Simulated scan of single mutants.
Amino acid sequence: MPPVSIFLNILWLLLGGLWMAFAWVVAAVIMAITIIGLPWARAAFNIAVYTLLPFGQKAVRRDSLTGQSDIGTGPLGFIGNLIWLLLAGWWLALAHLVTAVVLAVTIIGIPFAWAHVKLAGIALWPIGKAIVPA
């Protein structure tokens, strides 16, 4: 990871990244406890790690990465994302957006606010995403 990404990730942790990663872990644990929610728990844990250190990484669709469709990128992934949206996605996205608004008030917080806005989009539709180096 380049030094700039390391510096930005350290600032990110101090400016809201740590508590949002915790929120993703809470969502993942709740989904895992239900057993039926294990596919969502896996996606939430992956995105919790991404939320912890977002600079130097990006989220992409798995089918565009691998060149072939799978369960998470096909019709079942669509249904899974709809269920996720209703159960946990909307409140995670809302938390990211609130954090983004608070950070956007300051000049130094604008890049971090933009990262939260991107994570809010991922919070709404996480199934079928892969985290790769930027």
Score class of each variant (00 low, 15 high):
Ala120Met: 09
Ala44Asn: 09
Asn9Met: 01
Gly109Ala: 12
Pro111Leu: 01
Leu15Arg: 03
Trp90Ile: 11
Gly37Asn: 14
Ala115Asp: 01
Tyr50Cys: 03
Leu119Cys: 11
Ala43Trp: 04
Ser69Leu: 14
Ile107His: 02
Gly72Asp: 06
Thr51Cys: 09
Lys58Pro: 00
Ala88Gln: 10
Trp19Ala: 13
Ser5Gly: 08
Ala21Cys: 12
Arg61Asp: 12
His96Ala: 07
Ile107Tyr: 01
Ile33Ser: 13
Leu52Ile: 06
Ile110Gln: 10
Leu14Ser: 08
Ser64Pro: 01
Pro54Tyr: 02
Trp114Leu: 11
Leu18Gly: 09
Ile122His: 12
Val98His: 04
Leu8Asn: 00
Ile10Tyr: 11
Phe22Val: 11
Trp24Cys: 02
Pro54Cys: 04
Pro3Ile: 11
Ile127Met: 14
Val101Phe: 09
Trp84Gln: 10
Ile10His: 12
Arg42Asn: 14
Ala21Tyr: 07
Asn46Arg: 14
Ala27Arg: 11
Ala115Val: 08
Met31Asp: 14
Gly72Ser: 04
Ile35Gln: 11
Trp125Ser: 00
Arg62Lys: 14
Leu14Gly: 07
Leu97Ala: 03
Thr99Leu: 07
Gly72Asn: 03
Leu13Ser: 12
Leu13Gln: 13
Ala28Trp: 09
Ile122Glu: 08
Ser64Asn: 07
His96Cys: 12
Ile107Pro: 04
Ile30Asp: 09
Lys58Tyr: 01
Ala28Met: 09
Phe22Ile: 11
Leu11Tyr: 00
Thr106His: 00
Ala59Asn: 05
Gly56Ala: 09
Gly37Asp: 13
Ser5His: 08
Arg42Ala: 13
Leu8His: 05
Ser69Gly: 12
Ile33Ala: 14
Ser64Arg: 10
Pro133Lys: 07
Leu97Asp: 00
Pro75Ser: 15
